[in-house]
């Protein structure tokens, strides 16, 4: 899922200073699962903003909405009939959702209520960890299901660097060496032969280095 963390309330209140009639918009997708931008978070954030603003003698009217997904046009369009009645939209979806709202509602300022994090997994309740950087050229079949792009701090492709000590990355004592994890896993699977099958070089043109990416599925375009 796409993860995120709430922006500090002081930062949110500062963003909202010019406005007294806004929408707080959540999303039922990833940000609901990681409990940063779902329906409940919309209620809590809206209530917090109303209390802070009224205590400061500067009341604000808030419409609370939560879309099925802020990254799909059919759900975003459901806001169109009323979005123009408000001065701004504070979205607590991921950065993609916020930008999509901004693209669709060109005359309404869009404000981010969260800091979008990474593509990750829930390791335990309240703790998420990065697993994928969306490089566009997956090699997990050769690396025991452990991503060298994400799990190695340097995104190396041919084994651990000199900074790997007893399975720990030199970047942080809390980070396991991605390549140590890969080699341990390949050994456990009896697939060490895959270690030599990695490509001689990694092409990054399908990753962010090629600029903003686009996927076109001709078979799905109607």
């Amino acid at each position: 899922m796409i993860t995120g963390t709430p922006k500090p309330i002081e930062e949110v209140l500062e963003m909202l200073e010019p406005y007294d009639n806004i929408i707080v918009a959540g999303c039922h997708g990833c940000v609901t699962v990681c409990r940063v931008g779902g329906e409940k978070e919309v209620q809590v954030l809206a209530s917090t903003i109303r209390l802070a603003r009224e205590a400061a003698g500067n009341k604000i009217n808030i419409k609370e909405v939560s879309l099925e997904r802020q990254c799909d046009p059919e759900y975003v369009e459901s806001m169109r009939p009323y979005v123009g009645d408000y001065q701004a939209v504070l979205s607590i979806a991921c950065g993609a959702g916020i930008q999509f709202l901004a693209e669709k509602f060109t005359t309404t300022p869009l404000l981010p209520g969260i800091n979008t994090g990474f593509l990750g997994v829930t390791e335990r309740q309240g703790e998420w960890a990065e697993r994928c950087q969306g490089c566009g050229d997956c090699v997990l079949h050769l690396t025991g299901g452990i991503c060298p792009v994400t799990r190695c701090a340097k995104s190396l492709f041919h084994g651990p660097c000199g900074g790997s000590v007893r399975g720990i990355c030199e970047v942080d004592k809390e980070i396991k060496c991605g390549w140590q994890l890969i080699i341990d896993r390949l050994k456990a699977l009896g697939q060490m032969e895959n270690y030599g099958k990695l490509k001689p070089y990694k092409g990054w043109s399908s990753a962010r280095d090629g600029g903003p990416r686009r996927i076109i599925r001709e078979d799905m375009i109607s």
């Binding site: 309330i9 209390l51 802070a52 205590a55």
Partner: peptide, 8 residues
């Protein structure tokens, strides 16, 4: 914590 942050 929220009440502390918004000075209620």
């Amino acid at each position: 914590k929220i009440l502390e942050q918004i000075k209620i």
